[in-house]
């Protein structure tokens, strides 16, 4: 039986009729048309569907839309502001942190939570921190660099060089 579900996504309230079995990812993508949140595996493994719920990352393919009622949801569409891209978006752009871009929204949202809790993570902490997000093409190194870059930017420090290093 359908009923009205109101969710607050990127600061805006959306009310729609949906069945309780509607997964959060479908509410966000199909009902609201916010297609930046991706569906990869649909089995809670790949992290492409990661969104922030009250600032904590979660896999929206494994959460019912009704479970998110009353919470603040952030999707990739909510990262940039009028001033420009979010530092994590800048980090991914400057460091070639993506190839096809399929995993990127989930990677970035997970990274935002990671950096909010641990503003200056070690490379190992970053790698464990994104272990629930799979990337099939970039190869993680540039993703890790992107997160290090965003961390520096968020701390107000000089960002590391993005010049590629060539090996003779």
């Amino acid at each position: 039986m359908k009923k009205n579900i109101t969710l607050k996504i990127n600061g805006q309230e959306y009310t729609h009729e949906a069945e309780p079995r509607t997964l959060l990812v479908h509410f966000i993508r199909e009902i609201e048309g916010l297609r930046g949140t991706h569906i990869g595996c649909d089995t809670s493994s790949c992290g492409a569907c990661t969104v922030l719920i009250d600032g904590k990352s979660g896999k929206s393919c494994t959460i019912l839309a009704v479970q998110a009622v009353g919470k603040e949801i952030t999707t990739v569409e909510g990262l940039a502001t009028a001033e420009g891209p979010h530092p994590i978006q800048e980090g991914f752009k400057e460091n070639h942190g993506l190839h096809c871009g399929f995993c990127t929204p989930g990677m970035m949202l997970r990274s935002v939570e990671l950096l909010s809790k641990n503003p200056n993570p070690t490379e190992e902490e970053i790698r464990w921190g994104i272990s629930g997000n799979l990337c099939r093409c970039t190869g993680y190194n540039n993703i890790v660099k992107s997160i290090i870059y965003a961390g520096a930017k968020l701390r107000g420090e000089e960002t590391p060089s993005t010049e590629p290093k060539f090996v003779e």
Partner: peptide
């Protein structure tokens, strides 16, 4: 347990 997203939920 699992990954951060799993542990958050």
């Amino acid at each position: 347990i699992g990954d951060v997203q799993v542990r958050n939920c």
